[in-house]
Amino acid sequence: MNSPAPDHARISVIGAGPGGLTCARILQQRGMAVTVYDRDTGPDARNQGGTLDLHADNGQIALREAGLLDTFFELARPEGQEMRQMDPTGTVTFHNVPAADELFKPEIDRGQLRDLLLNSLRPGTVHWGRALDTISGPADGSRRLHFADGTTVETDLVIGADGAFSRVRPAVSPAVPAYTGVSFLEAWFSDVENRHPDIAELVGQGSAAAADGDRGLFAQRNSGDHIRVYLIQRVPVDWIAASGLAADDTDGIRALLLEEYAHWSPRMRQMISDNDGPYVDRPIFALPVPHTWEHNPTVTLLGDAAHLMPPLGVGVNLAMLDASELALALANVATVDDAIHTYEKTMLPRSTETAKALEGGADHLLSADVPDFGDDGDTRS
């Protein structure tokens, strides 16, 4: 079967995260039809996670191609670029305050970014409640998507934008994510200026990090007077159950954490113990480095589905840049097959270079020199 022209192809994006939605938006802007399938039952089915920074040299490039950069700047928080580094006593050892006109990597809540992209699409573009199970059909012919609800769809191109545990990835690669040995435990704080003023002062308008070599934390100011704190530990992936606790045993987990962080100052321990509601366990996984695959004329990947890395400020940015480059390739070449070749020729070397630079980076989150990793640690698109 000859590869179809992109403007006559049935294009299916799996995953309505920032990468998948960016790809769909740019395709529609270039006059091409696209359908997005997502396993969530609707756009408000779950919390989208914390804040993230969009960089001028990747994420913002994608938004410019999508015609959404000006709207992004209306929503973004440039003051969120402030970064504090502290020691376990709460003493500030490094403090970066952005200039008034600094726009290299302003922050935006992940939910706000998702809504911006969703609202830019034509009605009906996203089909909710469609969890992909498998893909069948020949690599060089039309593919059939099999969903968990028993329905199927015929398509000419499958774009896997479905995150860490992608259901599209097995069509091109046997690779699976491996646990890095480092886990995040997320804690939420609401109405912080009134209810948690000391924590609000510690964190400032952006992010604050601290570590002692064995454990750490990273706190982020979100919009709406919220702060999220990620407690970072080198632990077994099942550490909560191995401690005889359940994931919803907030009091038990809190007591265990206070033992682990016993030598930290009382002021810092507020960010461990005074959270509003339960903790959220987020073990950190990564794909093998390098992760590449043999070219497939009907399936490709972007974002975490293609190159899952430790959360060091590149995940969403690379996903959106991938999405932009893939959509532009589809808009500018003769066939779907040619577009995938063009896209992967750039994406795979770039992601390999970045993944090599960040390999083992999860361990650096526990060092006294915790980097500004920006993304929210949510590895599910």
Results as ranks from 00 to 15, higher is better:
residue 20 G to A: 14
residue 21 L to I: 08
residue 23 C to E: 12
residue 25 R to Q: 11
residue 26 I to E: 11
residue 26 I to M: 12
residue 27 L to Q: 08
residue 29 Q to K: 15
residue 30 R to Y: 07
residue 32 M to Q: 15
residue 37 Y to H: 15
residue 41 T to H: 12
residue 41 T to N: 08
residue 42 G to K: 01
residue 43 P to Q: 10
residue 43 P to V: 04
residue 45 A to H: 09
residue 45 A to Q: 03
residue 45 A to R: 02
residue 45 A to V: 01
residue 50 G to I: 00
residue 52 L to Q: 01
residue 53 D to T: 06
residue 57 D to E: 13
residue 57 D to Q: 13
residue 58 N to A: 15
residue 58 N to F: 09
residue 59 G to I: 00
residue 59 G to Y: 06
residue 60 Q to M: 09
residue 61 I to G: 00
residue 61 I to S: 00
residue 62 A to L: 14
residue 63 L to N: 08
residue 65 E to Q: 15
residue 67 G to E: 14
residue 68 L to K: 13
residue 69 L to V: 10
residue 76 A to V: 00
residue 77 R to A: 10
residue 78 P to N: 08
residue 79 E to F: 00
residue 79 E to D: 06
residue 80 G to Y: 03
residue 80 G to I: 07
residue 81 Q to N: 06
residue 87 D to V: 07
residue 94 F to Q: 05
residue 94 F to Y: 09
residue 94 F to A: 04
residue 97 V to L: 07
residue 97 V to G: 07
residue 98 P to H: 04
residue 99 A to C: 07
residue 99 A to I: 00
residue 99 A to V: 01
residue 100 A to P: 03
residue 103 L to I: 10
residue 103 L to D: 04
residue 106 P to A: 13
residue 110 R to Y: 08
residue 112 Q to E: 14
residue 114 R to N: 09
residue 114 R to K: 13
residue 117 L to N: 10
residue 117 L to R: 03
residue 121 L to N: 11
residue 124 G to Q: 14
residue 126 V to M: 05
residue 126 V to H: 05
residue 127 H to R: 15
residue 129 G to K: 06
